[in-house]
């Protein structure tokens, strides 16, 4: 038993964070450069657990929480999962379809540059062709577009680990998002002065930040445990990943809100970054959400 990062994981984490800082900063989330996707493929993040690379989920979760921290494209989640489970049938970017009941239109997130979309349901993953003549519309999250489409031919996997994998990656994004809001708030609380001192001196603000740190640390611990349980193919893996998703989502949302309060007026502007975290958090709630009933089940 060891829940600390090993040297390789720590090195990958740092390398990811460094690259993101230089090439994919959070502040640029709403207008990523055109060639970005190619870079993400080169970095290997589109298929870390795919045949060939075969890294473990623990390492992948560590890297994905760094990517989530800069609000990296949502399509990375679906693409990484698709490369693990449908390696033979895909090439390039895979968009993320939200669960829908046939024949209701499905909503596809981050469709730009993708030919197929991956739909998550608790029971499995399915891959759908995407029409060429489609329009892209914005979502609440300024970093993410969407399209609508009818049901098309699909291939699927019923491997129980497949939906867990995607849920784990979404949880990692949420944990990263919670981290980002915490750090943004703490940085601002040190920088901004009122009453002749940094606002972080005031306990009313300091304690808001401390609670953000607690939520992020709690969610992060569960994320790492959950990733290990998937690697071990534990019978409890579904429970632990659901717990990680629930805590991650909540931390992202609560921290997103708190971050705006810490920033005061500027936190409400379109120009400043806090709303990007909040809106990403709202979007993540709909991606592979945790099943409350599962959390109450007996095992685990």
């Amino acid at each position: 038993m060891d829940l600390t990062l090993n040297d390789e994981q720590e090195a990958l984490r740092t390398a990811t964070a460094d690259w993101c800082r230089d090439h994919m900063p959070l502040e640029g989330a709403r207008s990523r450069p055109a060639g970005l996707w190619g870079d993400l493929e080169t970095m290997g993040w589109t298929g870390m657990t795919a045949p060939g690379l075969d890294l473990d989920h623990a390492t992948e979760a560590v890297v994905f929480s760094e990517l989530g921290r800069v609000l990296a494209p949502i399509g990375l989640i679906s693409t990484a999962a698709a490369h693990r489970w449908f390696a033979d049938s895909i090439d390039g970017k895979v968009a993320l379809a939200l669960p829908a009941d046939e024949p209701r239109d499905m909503r596809v997130l981050d469709p730009g540059g993708a030919n197929v979309a991956l739909m998550w349901t608790a029971g499995g993953l399915r891959l759908f062709d995407m029409p060429n003549d489609r329009t892209h519309a914005p979502t609440i999250d300024p970093s993410t577009d969407q399209s609508r489409q009818e049901w098309t031919a699909s291939v699927g996997t019923k491997d129980a680990a497949a939906p867990l994998h995607l849920q784990l990656l979404a949880a990692a994004y949420a944990v990263g998002c919670a981290d980002a809001a915490r750090d943004m708030a703490a940085d601002y609380a040190k920088l901004r002065h009122q009453f002749d001192r940094p606002i972080g001196w005031f306990q009313a603000l300091k304690h808001i930040c401390s609670d953000m740190a607690v939520r992020a640390a709690v969610a992060r611990s569960q994320l790492h445990y959950a990733a290990c349980s998937l690697d071990a193919r534990d019978t409890d893996a579904a429970f632990h990943i659901a717990a990680a998703k629930r805590l991650g989502d909540q931390a992202a949302l609560d921290n997103g809100r708190a971050n705006i309060q810490v920033h005061g007026g500027i936190g409400m502007t379109d120009e400043a970054a806090p709303h990007l975290c909040l809106k990403r958090a709202h979007l993540l709630q709909f991606i592979a959400p945790a099943d409350a009933a599962l959390l109450l089940e007996d095992a685990a």
């Binding site: 038993m1 060891d2 829940l3 611990s221 569960q222 445990y225 717990a243 990680a244 629930r246 109450l296």
Partner: peptide, 21 residues
């Protein structure tokens, strides 16, 4: 209850993490 179930799991994960440290 489901929230606390998740939190208790996370607490164990945190404990393990701290022990690993």
């Amino acid at each position: 209850l489901s929230q606390m179930r998740a939190e208790v799991a996370a607490l164990r994960a945190m404990t393990y993490r701290n022990i690993s440290e």
